[in-house]
Amino acid sequence: MADNATRQENYDHLVLNTCVLAGRIMIESGSEMSRVNDTIMRIAQNAGLKDAQVYATLTGIIMSGGVKEVGAEVGSIDKRAFDMEKVAKVNELSREYAAKKIDIYQFRDDLIHINDLVATFPLWLQTVGAGLVSGTLVVVFQNNLPDFWVTFIVGMFGWLVYYFLNIYIQIRFLSEFLAAVVVGALALIAVKNGIGVKADDIIIGGMMPLVPGIPLTNAVRDALSGNLISGPARGIEALISACALGFGVAIALHFF
């Protein structure tokens, strides 16, 4: 009898742990909050914790199982990046769990090893992606066809600077600032040397991969779904990013 109770307790602990882990991965990869809450509650309900409660914010998750013996669990979130494939993977795993294709042990194991399960695009492909965003949007926004290739290359350099500084400095706003300085400087130098036509257009294009589009969208969504902690927090994150980019360009305009 007592053995049975301990086993149940262990199982409940495991479920809580899995839920918090899933939520952490989703928030760290840039998912919106209502989806996080939804996924966690669905896992808990499928695992048999009917009265589970979850409180998720941008920097941490608190979750209680609604069972007397188990209590609550806290997960802290220190850094956030954008990795949509992880969001999709957690979603897929929770669907498989709901359909009883995998059990909770397998689920938790997959979540712990999610970095091995999820493929990332290689750096050169990401860089080409940044170039594509920059080059094409110059044409779309400014009707400026001649500057396509210049912007493509400027955007690639801006993204590379951002990427490597992010690895070494780990302060996102600082790397955004320096990347913006590089984009602005390269654009102005290119125009001075007769490679580019309009410096303004090249800067607009080169900044596009760095513009905080996802945080801004998520901020509006979180605030409107009633999560008044995460919505404004994300808004501030986006605002600081935008200011960092702006200061970077302003400095480049001033000195070059």
């Binding site: 999709a88 949007l137 596009m208 991969p209």
Partner: peptide, 13 residues
């Protein structure tokens, strides 16, 4: 292509 390029940056499946 801009949609695809941004997808590459944020690691879409």
């Amino acid at each position: 292509f801009s949609g695809i390029g941004f997808g590459l940056i944020v690691n879409l499946p």
